[in-house]
């Protein structure tokens, strides 16, 4: 295998990574100005709330979180992958420089928070203080999101959510059509098999992941079989929102995130269901 090109971070010599082109990071930083960055950082981190301060003023930099992170362990203990290092390279530096960072720095932050942290909460579990590192990562994600510096595919999913309220740009007609098509397909094998759409008062509302009606159609087929065999009174929503994934939550796009959760709950209330079953 050819040796891949490496970049050494200008700000932290320990941060050495392979070059991985991504339009969402490489192109979007071109429109950033120092004023814009400073303003955004101050808007997001300006009000130092209890949860931010607790982390910043308590963390004793002991490094005990490092071995909780699979990124750190998998990269032979590279210190720049440790959870505390991710905070150091992003939020500490932003606050230390009082928001006066450049676009290159934001790009580096975006790479750290969007592609090297899974928000899995394992570090909080291993931190002696139980500090919410993931909350801090989320704040940095918010900064990067507001500045529009997000890996292209994540941003695309977010746009899909904002536009169609599902992650795969599936319109309502396609969604209904897919459900009816699957009902016919599986119904060829089983008697009276239905995929009830918008059935009021059903016991269970099943919500797929957005990708299921698009590329993972077999999940719908299997679910229909299971529901049929178990004799469950179930339904799928006929109106948006039916996608149980929530990319905006990960990007900290709060407006779209709330629209999705609200839409799911409103569907549940409208159909008076008792259980909401999500694939994710």
């Amino acid at each position: 295998m050819a040796v891949k090109e490496k970049i050494v971070s200008r700000d932290f010599k320990e941060y050495v990574r392979e070059v991985n082109p991504d339009v969402g990071l490489d192109e979007s930083i071109k429109g950033l100005t120092p004023e814009k960055i400073e303003k955004t950082i101050k808007a997001v981190l300006g009000a130092r709330t209890a949860r931010i301060r607790a982390v910043l003023e308590t963390c004793i930099h002991c490094g005990l979180c490092s071995k909780a992170c699979q990124w750190y362990l998998s990269n032979d203990g590279d210190p720049s992958y440790a959870p505390v290092a991710k905070m150091r390279m992003t939020i500490w530096e932003m606050l230390k420089r009082d928001g006066k960072v450049d676009a290159e720095f934001i790009k580096q932050c975006a790479r750290i928070v969007f592609t090297e942290c899974n928000i899995c909460h394992r570090c909080s579990m291993y931190c002696p203080y139980g500090l919410d590192v993931t909350f801090i990562i989320g704040l940095v994600r918010r900064v990067c999101f507001v500045l529009g510096v997000v890996p292209q595919r994540q941003m695309d999913q977010d746009h899909a959510h904002a536009t169609t309220l599902n992650q795969v740009w599936l319109g309502q007609n396609d969604w209904l059509d897919t459900m009816q098509w699957q009902e016919e397909e599986v119904g060829a094998e089983y008697k009276d098999l239905r995929i009830p759409i918008d059935k009021e008062g059903a016991e269970v509302m099943w919500l797929p992941l957005g990708a299921e009606p698009k590329t993972g159609i077999y999940h719908i087929e299997r679910t229909a079989k299971i529901m049929h065999a178990a004799g469950i009174d179930w339904t799928v929503p006929g109106k948006d929102v039916w996608d149980s994934s929530n990319m905006p939550m990960f990007l900290r796009d709060f407006a779209t995130m709330q629209r999705i959760v609200r839409g799911l709950f409103d569907n549940a209330i409208r159909l008076r269901i008792k259980k909401m079953v999500l694939t994710e």
Partner: peptide, 16 residues
């Protein structure tokens, strides 16, 4: 940050 003496109890309370 020696204040972790009392912050410890607060942050653990939160995470717990």
């Amino acid at each position: 940050r020696l204040g972790h003496m009392f912050y410890f109890f607060m942050t653990r309370t939160w995470m717990g």
